[in-house]
Structure formats: C-alpha cells, structure tokens
Simulated assay, not measured.
Amino acid sequence: MVESSFLEQYGIRLNQVDDMSWKEFSALLHGISAETALGRMVNIRAEEDKEILKSFTADQKAERTRWRTSQATQIDEADMEKEMENLEKMFANAFS
C-alpha cells in the first residue's frame, strides 16, 4: 500500500529508488494524502463518527473490525516501542 501510494501521489516507484534518505522517505510518507490507498486505509481504521460508519461498505467495516481487533490484542507499550525502533531501522536501512 505504501508503494502504490507513493506512485499515485508522487510518481515515485520505491522499488526502483536507490538513493532516497530516511529523512526524505519519512517526510514524503507523512505527507501522503487521504486520497491515496494508504490514506484511505488510515481513514477507515481511524474513523469514529457513527454516521460515517453507517455508510461504510461491508469491506470497510470488516477492515476496521480486523484492525481494531488486532490493536486490542497488541503487545505492551515497552514492546511496542522496541518494535517501532526495529521498523524504523528496517526502513532506514532500506532507504539510506
């Protein structure tokens, strides 16, 4: 989803980029529009407005439920910090 969103918004094919810094990747990722695949998914997962939720498709409701269920069973905060650090290192290695 990240790759398709970068292509959609910026015209960048991440799998063909050899020299993007972590700082640039991070800045571009933070600027992803709600109109991209990733942006739409984030909106579905984060939506709390009951009126908007009523208009969700069955697929959108299923994704939101799956996400909320996975978040409810997540690891504790200290483990989450460690996992986030690992994820950042992985992206930094991939785009440094």
Rank of each mutant, 00 (worst) to 15 (best):
S96R: 14
A34V: 07
F56W: 04
K54D: 15
M41C: 08
Q16F: 00
E88Q: 12
V2Y: 01
G11F: 01
K82I: 10
Q16D: 01
I75D: 08
G31C: 04
G31P: 01
D79L: 06
Y10K: 00
K50I: 13
K89I: 14
A94E: 14
Q71I: 06
D18N: 11
Q74D: 11
Y10L: 04
L87F: 12
G11P: 02
S70F: 08
I75V: 11
E8C: 06
D79I: 03
E51L: 14
K89C: 07
F25S: 06
R68M: 09
S55G: 08
R64L: 10
M41D: 09
W22M: 13
A27Q: 14
E83A: 13
S5I: 01
K82Y: 00
Q9F: 05
R45G: 02
I44R: 04
S26E: 13
D59G: 07
Y10W: 06
I32R: 01
A62V: 04
A94D: 12
M84K: 13
Q9L: 04
E51G: 13
N93M: 02
S55T: 13
L53Q: 10
N93H: 01
H30K: 15
D18H: 12
L28E: 02
E85W: 00
S26I: 05
R45L: 08
E35G: 02
S96K: 15
A46L: 14
S70T: 06
S33V: 05
E24Y: 02
S96V: 11
K82M: 02
D18Q: 10
E47A: 14
E47Y: 08
V2H: 01
L14V: 08
M84C: 11
L29P: 03
M41H: 11
L14Q: 04
A46K: 15
S4Q: 11
D19S: 13
F95N: 02
R45K: 14
E8L: 05
D18S: 11
M1R: 08
F95V: 08
T73D: 09
A78F: 06
Q16I: 01
M20E: 05
E88P: 00
V17E: 09
D19M: 04
E24L: 10
M80C: 07
Q16R: 01
N15P: 06
K54L: 12
T69C: 04
L38G: 06
L7D: 05
I12P: 00
A37F: 06
N15L: 08
A78G: 02
S21P: 10
E77Y: 08
H30F: 12
M84A: 13
I44Q: 06
E81H: 09
D49M: 09
K54F: 08
M84L: 15
D59M: 03
V42Y: 08
G11S: 04
S70R: 09
N86G: 09
M20R: 01
R68Y: 03
E81K: 11
T73Q: 06
R13D: 13
K50V: 13
K50Q: 15
T57I: 05
T57M: 02
F91V: 09
E81W: 06
